[in-house]
Design a protein around this nucleic acid. Sequence first.
DNA 1: CAGTATCCCTTTTGATACTG
DNA 2: CAGTATCAAAAGGGATACTG
Lengths: 149, 149
Amino acid sequence: MEDGTSKALGYCTGTEDDQARQWDVRADCDVRQILDRVADKWSLLVIALLDRRKMRFTQLRRAVDGVSQRMLTVTLRHLERDGLVRRTVYPVVPPRVEYELTPLGISLHEVITSLVIWTEEHQQEISAARSDYDEKAASEEHELQPAVG
Amino acid sequence: MEDGTSKALGYCTGTEDDQARQWDVRADCDVRQILDRVADKWSLLVIALLDRRKMRFTQLRRAVDGVSQRMLTVTLRHLERDGLVRRTVYPVVPPRVEYELTPLGISLHEVITSLVIWTEEHQQEISAARSDYDEKAASEEHELQPAVG
DNA sequence: CAGTATCCCTTTTGATACTG
DNA sequence: CAGTATCAAAAGGGATACTG
């Protein structure tokens, strides 16, 4: 689980009969590594929290608040390994460790922001689509079971 | 599992002592729904494949190729529910079902593209960071176990 | 404080078999 | 063809206990 590079990505074998897409299938293989990081349950929160400031472990733990100690550690290690976060250890008696975004991390943060903005702008449409879908799915069921209520 | 709106998102409770971040913590709750869709192992591939053309179920299944029948169905249902993909059933003898992006789906596709581009542009840096991290992690271990090689 | 190690439960995913 | 249903395997993630 610690090694993001060795996982099998079944669909990485390129087939060139597929000229319509503009993303290279092979590019997806690389993209996946980052997407998995972005998509990670906690990574996004940590990146957002670390925007323009350093934070200590416990400080992050409280800020994210739903996260377990284990998952925060795992998340931070992944981000550090990918060069998105820098970890600084101060060799003092009560250990002090600070986390901050690297330039690469800041740059990713900006890109993710555009995705976040898109989501905010289209949230209404998505909610509407969901309600619509759920309603229709419900009436489909009524066709099979007309006498429920 | 079919209901993306009811899942618990532990970190959604907003604490306002946190003025540095520019994303609203509550926004993350909504954002998560979409991010989960974007981040999904197969969604991205399907959206990419559906760019500017209709495709049938089996056609998609072969194009994605690593995907199981079940996962493709689940993925398509999610995308359909979110209003990103339109599903059209032709009531003919061998069933014919076509999938295509909605305008909303096209719009998301464009935003995701910027993320894909970012990844392609920074892939080298990330790989380098990983090698660096792994190398350092390896030598840390040698400090504990000096006689290995 | 800032972790690591372990156990265990939940969710996700894949394989297989069956159907309109 | 385009699914649904079911079951088993695997990964993800939390709680707890321990450590430099």
